[in-house]
Amino acid sequence: MAEMLELRVNGAAHQVDVAGRRKLLGILRDDLGLTGSKYGCGEGQCGACTVLVDGVAAKSCVAVASALAGREITTIEGLATGDKLHPVQQAFIDHDAMQCGYCTPGMVMAGAALVENNREPSDEQIVEAMQGNICRCGTYQRIVAALRQAAAAPTGAGDRQEAAS
């Protein structure tokens, strides 16, 4: 039995079938074609599927979609503003903070949530915010450096949101 619901993703409304306590990740990837969010474990352990829900990092593989009506969901595809990368995206490139890149979308989203709320995170705060994201290629030190840069970037998140509104 289909159970249709409206979800807001990257600023657009979508009618999706959320029956059977479907998780957000499958809907994003298979129904909406937003394959930037990755499957890594399906149990909230690796962070490859991280998206923003009302600006807060959430693991979409365990997020029950029916609970997300009326919330603003942002995926990696919706993070940049047009051609302009979000400071966290740019910082990942600048610091070569990836190898295979499979963890990258989730890392970038978790990192974006962090720097949008804290423009001067300490290394401990970065580790705490990112502890739920695995990079099996081991680029952690580079990601920390990238997030330090992004947090300090003048075109940080706050400005971005103002610009967008």
């Binding site: 930037g36 990696i76 595809e77 990368l85 995206q89 990942f92 890149g101 979308p105 970038v108």
Partner: peptide, 9 residues
């Protein structure tokens, strides 16, 4: 690198 940070790869 850009295709990875934007999720397009």
């Amino acid at each position: 690198a850009r295709s990875f940070v934007t999720g397009s790869h």
